[in-house]
Nucleic acid binder design. Structure first.
Lengths: 210, 210
DNA sequence: GTCATCATGTAAGCCGTTACATGATTGC
DNA sequence: GCAATCATGTAACGGCTTACATGATGAC
């Protein structure tokens, strides 16, 4: 799940750990975010596995602009420009970039259907990386799962406890709304709403065309 | 979280592990349920800690009806009656009962405010065990937390990705609805909607008055 | 001088999972 | 005889958390 978030975010732009954490928090919400204690080991794992590469951002050498900048994305460059004024002396950052292998892994991660609600949300967040049929399948799987949950609910006996019944009511409403949302998404997919120009984000080419 | 579910269910009636698992699944939904591999160790932990006691349900001795039945609840008796036909020869069950210590622990567990959404749902499911002021505080804390999340959302930049923006929209709607639900709950509490006769479930008396 | 922010990591531990081991009863 | 259901447990492992360790910079 952490891997999914990291790889998904690295598709857009190269990032260092600290910034990555901020973006994950933004994506998942301050609740159910991740800690450094899991992020850094995860990055190390991903690097060992060849899914990402890291480049030590050289500090205190203003004469040499962006050494090994081949894998550094345009957005990071912009970020670095914004924070240029006190570039030297800062603690060395490790900038991570996704590899072709990582892109393949990411596609598999988005396509699989294990894990909880948070994992599904993450999949939706990155589902543009799937081809249309896989994306549609993702939505349909979820729809079925939610429908099943609802059916199971209807069979359960009504609770006598006021709070418990209010809770059940609320949760049922939630499921119904998710179902409607999924139906909307599915309808849009079937209608061929996806722009004909394929997203090139996952193309195994070096140098982001942006 | 598992402890919370177990203790909460044991307040209503004494249960053995297998049945407990079924009820937890009913409460949490087939998704995000628990496995035996965590339930049984949890029960052992709770027993070691003195929060529950276990009684080996004697089988193949039809002559002696319910030995040590002092701590066996009425609802279990009913359950046993329903499955009486083949009572002897069945694998021995361990029936768990909550202790006064367990009731105190449960109250603390429901009152605390750590953990994720599932933990909150569980707290609501058992919040009748709190006194009105603590219950109100529970709802208000949650309300604040959800409101904060929403405020943070509004500040975030809108995504360019279609799926991501649809997701954000959906999640925002969810938060708004939870807010409205909480406001309802809080209003009902403030209006003194709680029945004046206190729930005796948490009274440290032996022998359930049912 | 000390606090907040940026920045990267390690170590211990918790809580949960899957897979395995055991064993009886009922129904096909 | 075989599978499903009931019933209880152990072992290995995974992923994530908290707390700790380190260290620089800028603002008050």
């Amino acid at each position: 799940m952490l891997e999914l978030a990291v790889l998904g975010l690295l598709v857009d732009t190269d990032l260092h750990g600290y910034e990555l954490k901020k973006r994950i928090t933004e994506l998942l919400g301050p609740w159910s975010s991740v800690s450094f204690g899991s992020l850094y080991p995860a990055l190390a794992r991903l690097e060992r596995g060849g899914h990402v590469t890291s480049t030590a951002e050289a500090a205190s050498q203003p004469g040499r602009p962006t050494p090994m900048s081949g894998s550094l994305g345009a957005e990071l460059a912009a970020y670095r420009t914004r924070s240029q004024p006190r570039a030297s002396g800062r603690r060395a950052r490790k900038v991570y970039a996704i590899t072709d292998d990582g892109r393949a892994t990411l596609r598999a991660l988005v396509d699989d259907h294990t894990g909880d609600d948070r994992a599904f949300a993450l999949r939706v967040a990155f589902c543009r990386l799937l081809d249309p049929s896989a994306r549609l399948a993702l939505f349909r799987r979820r729809r079925e799962s939610v429908a099943e949950r609802l059916a199971h609910r209807d069979a359960a006996p009504t609770s006598t406890d006021r709070y418990r019944s209010r809770l059940l009511e609320f949760q049922d409403d939630r499921l119904l709304r998710e179902l409607a949302w999924l139906d909307d998404l599915i309808a849009a997919e079937v209608a061929g709403d996806h722009n004909p120009g394929d997203d090139p984000a996952l193309a195994p080419t070096g140098g982001n065309p942006r």
